[in-house]
Amino acid sequence: MLKLYHNPISGNSRRVWIALLEKEIPFEEIVVKLDGDQLTPEFLEISPFHHIPVLVDDDFTLVESLAILDYLETEYSQNPLLPTEAKALATVRMVEMVTVNELSPILTRLSSEMMGFTKEPQKLEQAKQKAHTVLKFFESLLGERPYFSSNCLTRADIVAGTIVPWLPSLGLPLDNYPKLSAWIERLVQRETWQKTQPSQEALEAFIPQWETLMKAYLPQ
């Protein structure tokens, strides 16, 4: 059986977690506490960069969430999460890469400012402006469809959907993005989103670990 090493608070982990559930693939869930578990010799053997998630399939070990999603889509064909039509597939890839390369660092900056770990108004404003560029792009990509690139859920929705819904709680309201707001409502009603949504208790318990992680990963 597949083994998923992850932490429920991690957006990177959650996208793999949701994909496994959406594709109905049996797996064993192994929670890695980010207060030092990720630095143990045992964990470094399977994740030399001490990152989560990690997926182990018998003797094959994968790191990096997008690579894991590729593997799941190819190795486990049920309930596909990638379209086959060229434009739809390209749209999925665009959304994935924009989320990872542009939006994820912004989320880190907003989180750090919200929790008081950094106080850099200029960088905060730059991050918000960049976020609005991404949100306008996503709003235009959605068009009149319920999901990105398709009438059905794809990986684009999973990857972006583990980041975008957090933005209002970090001081970035989505009032000017009605299509994105409606898209979020559709996502959070799905059983897989509800099952993987971190509880308030889990979020509060994670706060003491967040400052250390921010010092290591916050974009300069």
Rank of each mutant, 00 (worst) to 15 (best):
E96Y: 05
T133Q: 12
P173T: 00
A86G: 15
R109C: 07
A90C: 06
P146I: 05
S150N: 12
S149A: 14
A86R: 13
P178F: 00
M94H: 04
K136N: 10
K128R: 03
D157S: 02
P165C: 07
L103Y: 10
G143K: 01
A88E: 10
I163H: 11
L153H: 09
R155H: 11
E96Q: 11
V100S: 12
L167F: 07
E139Y: 02
K119D: 11
E102W: 02
E139S: 07
I158N: 08
P165G: 08
M94I: 05
P173V: 03
P168H: 09
L141K: 04
L110N: 02
E120Q: 09
N151S: 07
S112L: 12
H132Q: 06
S111Y: 15
F138C: 01
T118N: 02
S104E: 07
E120C: 05
L153M: 09
A90R: 01
F117Y: 14
E96P: 03
D175R: 06
R93Y: 14
E144L: 06
K119C: 08
L170F: 12
Q126R: 08
Q126T: 15
L103C: 14
L170V: 07
M94N: 04
V159N: 06
D175V: 10
R145W: 08
S104P: 00
T99V: 01
G161R: 00
L103F: 05
R109H: 15
E102I: 13
E125S: 04
N176E: 13
E144F: 13
N176S: 07
A131Y: 04
E139F: 01
E96F: 05
N151I: 05
T162L: 10
T162G: 08
M114Y: 12
N101I: 12
T154A: 06
G161Y: 00
E113I: 01
K128S: 01
K128W: 01
R109W: 09
M115Q: 09
L135S: 00
M97K: 05
L142D: 03
D175I: 14
A156L: 02
F137M: 02
A127Y: 05
A160S: 14
I163F: 11
G171E: 09
I163E: 10
E102H: 10
Q122W: 14
F148D: 08
N151T: 11
L89H: 10
S104D: 11
V100N: 13
K130R: 03
G143V: 15
A131E: 04
W166F: 00
